[in-house]
Amino acid sequence: MKLSLGPIPYYWPRERVMDFYKAIETAPVDIVYLGETVCSKRRELRAADWLELADRLSESGKTVVMSTLALMEAESERLALERLVNNGRYMIEANDATGLGLSMGKPFVAGPHINTYNAGTLKELADVGAVRWVMPVELSRDILAAMHAARPEGLETEVWGFGRLPLAFSARCFTARARNLPKDSCELACIDYPGGLSMSTQDGKGFLTINGIELQSADPCNLIEAVPELLDMGVEVLRISPEPEGTEQVIQAFRDCVEGTRSSAQAMEQIRDLYPRFSNGYWKGEAGMNWQESLSA
């Protein structure tokens, strides 16, 4: 099973992005997804910068995939996507039907924001050129097992293994709203929140994370205990989504676990203290926010 690193969901200053990927050059991940998936106004890095980063990571032995916006609204976004699809060097991860339409006939990854809930849809995606699908985060291991077993030949399966869950997208920017700014003059406020802005319930419990037009879970999903099951199933790729802190430790823990140099329980100890709480409810077919250890027991 390969490990992938998802696109950075947050808006980080250019230097921070560069430093982050400098470290990733030597980190034990096989596939790196690059680019902006949340908001087209986040332009610390331009398209050319991303491609340059892609070249560098590619030279260090990583397979690079260029990710695309989950919500397309403006004409300019469509034009940018068209250029990206035709970059000539790297496969793209389509995250909406615009991407599907533009990628038709080219190999691509059907990202986590493409609604893929049954084998009929897997076949459709493979027919238009998908070489890999990423399971929607709200699906369970039972659904995964059924779909993975029924997938068309040559279509790889990727599962969201670690990171805050992308739960919803909107026309509205919730970060701008929190700052009392209109979206069109948002002052790029997201840059002040490298891990998003926490949203908690009135009784003080962390619930969601505001990240521009996206809402994420408060707690990262953590499937490290499910690694043996994922290996048994023959899932090809396990994804880790970047967080501002601890991503390299998470990658190492998952790598050790996948290679069998540490058990799931031992690997869990390597990352337990990075976050106050995790979630794995979706995997078990429950409310996504639930967290129960000893999955495989």
Binding site: L71, Y117, E138, L167, F169, A171, R172, L215, Y282, G288
Partner: peptide, 21 residues
């Protein structure tokens, strides 16, 4: 709906059931 329809899992995150599923 303030969210993009078909792209909202808030309900299943809290309850297990969403519009999609």
């Amino acid at each position: 709906c303030v969210m993009v329809e078909g792209r909202c899992m808030l309900s299943s995150y809290a309850t297990g059931d969403s519009p999609n599923t």
